[in-house]
Design a protein around this nucleic acid. Structure first.
Lengths: 194, 194, 194, 194
DNA sequence: AATGAATGAGTATTCATTCAT
DNA sequence: GATGAATGAATACTCATTCAT
């Protein structure tokens, strides 16, 4: 009965902590946009108005913080796949639309694409999260497009996603490089020749 | 006795220094492969068996070192373009072969692709070296393929190269990601639909 | 229970940190005396028994550290001017007394005089601090002495202070050079000939 | 008879070496003006068109190089004292003129004044050179002015010179500080009150 | 639970000095 | 004798992480 030993109502704290975490994630998201996902922890803490140790308490590794920041959007991406497949007549078009959304996600999340390419083991949890949640969706879209004969390439979902990540990692504000156009070429290349 | 007035032939040292520079470049190349082109200067110096200042003497900036390490291969790449165009019946095939060689170059020079994507101004000399030497070659191949009607995409040479760089930056020993296959898809995407 | 919503009073740490900063300033003052104000940060950190980063946390630039170390004494110097003018019958005597105190300050703060002469822009904040706080006081004393006819020289306050700084920079423990006597000559030179 | 063992005529070499040393000193003088007497050895070597080791061979310590560079002017300064005393009616005026020439020397030799103030033992030879050659001259002028009753201050020649050095060390191109005017005040302060 | 102060390892760069040629 | 290449010590500054309060 810990409740009797700690007079403070645990509910309140939970709500408080959750709100805290929420604002922390919002702050982290902003810093990620402006300084990339490798931004100094202290910067994130300052933006969130908390101490650095608080970040570590909530998210022991940077990968976990990144996952938390993008979880909703990654999950949405994962859910988009089946829906697009249902709602679109054409499997290849569904794939193309989904890829577009993935590109949207990556180009607005400055530095994320680079992290997806990183081999630093500290990012493994992030890689795993993608591997488990969204790679299967991509693979499924590819399979459907292959079944319908629109795609002949035997490429894996994970490889397609890595490739898209690479193409998006090259996008910088400084140049007029258009990641979307490049990905379009890639997806066009998937298409079976008529 | 004019010989006594001109103290010593300055050649002798040069030969020694040049040999030294050669071994330094070899060592740098190896470190670049294993640790990327952003490896600490100290590591490169240690690998070369010289002091850090020796690196600075030969190559005042990191970009100059990188250029020196890859100069021959980059130059060869630049020369390959016109030759392929002459020796190949088909402009598109020439482009594809040339791109293959570019990919060969990038995937074996681990970390170089990432630097080509970097916006750090310290790499500007390197970017310029590519911009001046090899981007025009790529553009020329693209133009030729467009003239022959095999390629319709209006993509610039520099953007194609950035895209290829991005696709190759995703290549790591750890996974079975095949950069060449991805680039193949991209180049296939360039092709006019029949 | 509003207390639970406001986690912890931020005062506690401040007291600790302030005490720490105090000892840091004391240590820096000692190192400045023995090694000059350009002493390596690491030496100061070691003398204070803290890590180098702690110095940077408290004083991001060296100039800020120097200012902090000498702030009280510089401020006291600034306040001395008007007081001496009020309490002394003779404006020239007030000037002379004030200059004596400035000399006291400089000769006991080994290396400070040299920094006041330095053109390194990193010391600009320190120069500005003097320029804003104490140069006007010196100028005011000079003006008063000129009004009373005791001083005829048109010298600026800042130039007088630079000169005093120069005379004190020459003071070292090694020799029997008496900075105060030299400054006395200078101030005597200011005096109108009867 | 070393001459028989070394066929090359030693005379020629001497002349060569002396010319070499001459141009080296000229180059050093120029670098001293632009970068101060603490300029990197390598800069001096480059300006002189010789290797760094050549500088070390000729002048094992920096102080020796500085002495060599300024020897003629320092010697001239030493000779000026007695001459001025002979040619000038007034001992105080002779002193003042001589001090002016010392100031001329210091303000045009950027950084020299600072070195004269330095306590770094590596400059001891330079200090000694002044101590032996020019300090007695200054003392002699002071003595003469005291004998004629124009100067009452008991100041030593060396202290006067240190003070002048200090006043000149404060001179920088950046500000409108007028070292000569400050020294004038100092010398005026030496003067007996009428 | 939260804070933010302290830590100390890691890296680039400069320069006096030595030494092989 | 001269050269200039190589050396390596020295220092400023950053940042992830820990810990006392």
């Amino acid at each position: 009965m810990p409740k009797s030993t700690t007079p403070a109502p645990p509910r309140a704290k939970r709500a408080d902590a959750r709100r805290n975490e929420k604002s922390l994630l919002n702050a982290a998201a902003e810093v990620f946009v402006s300084s990339g996902v490798e931004a100094p922890i202290r910067d994130i803490a300052k933006a969130a108005g908390v101490g650095t140790a608080t970040i570590y308490r909530h998210f022991p590794t940077r990968a976990e913080l990144i996952i938390a920041v993008y979880r909703h959007q990654v999950d949405a991406l994962a859910e988009d796949g089946p829906r697009l497949l249902r709602e679109t007549d054409n499997a290849y078009d569904a794939l193309r639309t989904w890829v577009d959304r993935f590109v949207d996600f990556l180009v607005t999340k400055h530095g994320l694409a680079a992290v997806l390419q990183s081999t630093d083991t500290c990012f493994d949890p992030l890689h795993d999260y993608f591997l488990d949640g969204v790679v299967p969706v991509c693979s499924h879209l590819l399979d459907a497009a292959r079944e319908s004969g629109e795609v002949t390439s035997e490429i894996d979902g994970i490889h397609l996603m890595r490739a898209i990540g690479g193409l998006c990692a090259g996008a910088t504000d400084a140049h007029d490089y258009d990641a979307r156009a490049m990905v379009d070429l890639l997806v066009t290349g998937l298409r079976a020749r008529v």
